[in-house]
């Protein structure tokens, strides 16, 4: 019937609009895996470094080479593993949905995520080398949140709420700087994993 054709038209329009404007193959499992990796990284940092030193304070502290390199190695390892696992799960989902992984939408999403992330990353590296270790957990949360909000125009729009949650946690972490590592674990670990499970169940 006529009506049926127009109903099909409408659903086709909706499908094409969302597929052409947003990268919707972001996998929920990548949220879960990066959350898990973040938790492991934070526990390692706590056990190896923060447990033995009062680094989480509002001033520059002398960090010896051994601790500095441990922190950098853990940070780098966590970042690398997270990126690899996120790309792997997302690539798998893309291929399953017969979408090209590296299309316009994916590029736009990535670039818009990377601008705040790289800014925050470089700022944190500078602070780390100057001894302001305590600022790093709060700032990484805040910049990650800003990156998600910036990227939310190019993927699921509800990722914006995850971004807002991370920013709020970052601000709280600044306020209670001696507890900021736990808040970091909550933000990058627990909340990230819960969000990942939610989109995994939906999609």
């Amino acid at each position: 019937m006529e009506k049926e054709k127009y109903l099909n038209d409408l659903s086709e329009i909706r499908k094409i609009m969302s597929r052409s404007a947003r990268f919707i193959s972001l996998s929920g499992l990548s949220g879960v895996s990066t959350g898990l990796i973040a938790l492991i990284g934070a526990v390692l940092a706590h056990q190896l470094v923060f447990r033995h030193h009062d680094y989480l304070v509002y001033e520059a502290v002398p960090v010896d080479l051994k601790n500095l390199s441990s922190l950098l190695l853990i940070a780098l390892g966590t970042l690398l593993l997270s990126v690899v696992s996120a790309l792997w799960f997302t690539g798998r989902k893309s291929r399953r949905e017969n979408q090209r992984v590296w299309d316009n939408q994916a590029q736009r999403l990535l670039i818009n995520l990377l601008i705040p992330l790289t800014t925050g990353g470089i700022l944190c590296l500078i602070l780390l080398f100057k001894g302001y270790v305590g600022f790093v957990p709060a700032l990484t949360l805040i910049f990650y949140g800003l990156a998600l909000i910036n990227g939310s125009h190019y993927t699921f729009s509800h990722i914006r709420y995850l971004g807002i949650a991370e920013i709020l946690l970052g601000l709280v972490a600044f306020l209670f700087i001696d507890r900021s590592l736990y808040l970091w674990m909550l933000g990058f670990g627990a909340i990230q994993m819960i969000y990942g499970m939610l989109i995994q169940r939906k999609g």
Binding site: E12, I16, M17, S20
Partner: peptide, 20 residues
Amino acid sequence: RIRLGIMSALMVNDQLDFNT
């Protein structure tokens, strides 16, 4: 259908190239 699809995509993108 195809013209409808082209327009749908161009409504939400400033511009798109042929291959996309």
